[in-house]
Amino acid sequence: MILRPRKHDRSTAAITRLADGSASERERAALEAAVARSPQLAAELAEQRQAVTALAALDLQAPPGLHARIRELERKPASRRPRTTRRAAVIALAVLVLVLVSLSRSSGHASVRGVIAIALASASQPPPAVSPRDHALLDVAIDRATFPNWDYRGWRTTGSRLDTLGGQSVETVYYTARGWERVGYSIVGGSALPVKGAKLVLARHGVSYWVISDAGASVLTWRRDGHTCVLASHRAPVSALLALAQAD
């Protein structure tokens, strides 16, 4: 004896529609009568309704930063998006408060761990434009430390944010490769931060690259022109971060 699931039939279609209220009056009356007679149909209907109800109850709102970036896209063609100024500053301020509140509980000064949290967070501003003077760079910098344009490597900028951590500014640009590997690149303004609990993975051209173990993420940090740089990603492997960092 071989058992296999019953094929799609009218009652399956009717149960599907009854569960979400899209069944016709005739279907509904007939099926409700059938359900009342059959515990199996009643169980199937309950299962369908459980899924419908759970999904209907979803009340997730898109983050404010995404709304802002969509509005920006509506205003300008994607290829010519400028950075927002005042509105972005308001959003950045709100994010700053959240970050400071969450981080001030554990530390009163900037730390690489805090920068990693920012690099893995959501963007709050549109992506910066490409620098008009040098297409290999983006039109954003912190203390003259610029961000690279990795478009030629298949990494497109998707957003940015500016935070203050323990009195030091942290500028972050988010890049995405096709396929949704997302990388956050943060540069800390002011003096470099001490690196603790990191493992040296590469020293080249006078630059030391360190990997930090952070649960759930790949993290690479190094110093450029005296500034702490952090590349972090939930999906991209450390090897990809290292390749990007060396191209910086």
């Binding site: 396929g179 993975v201 590469l202 939930h234 990809a240």
Partner: peptide
């Protein structure tokens, strides 16, 4: 599809370290 086509970036020095990836 694009992600599937893209070759994985390999950095021997990192691979050699057998970094744990708890993603």
């Amino acid at each position: 599809r694009a992600a599937a086509r893209r070759p994985a970036v390999v950095a021997a020095r990192v691979e050699e370290l057998s970094l744990s990836d708890g993603r």
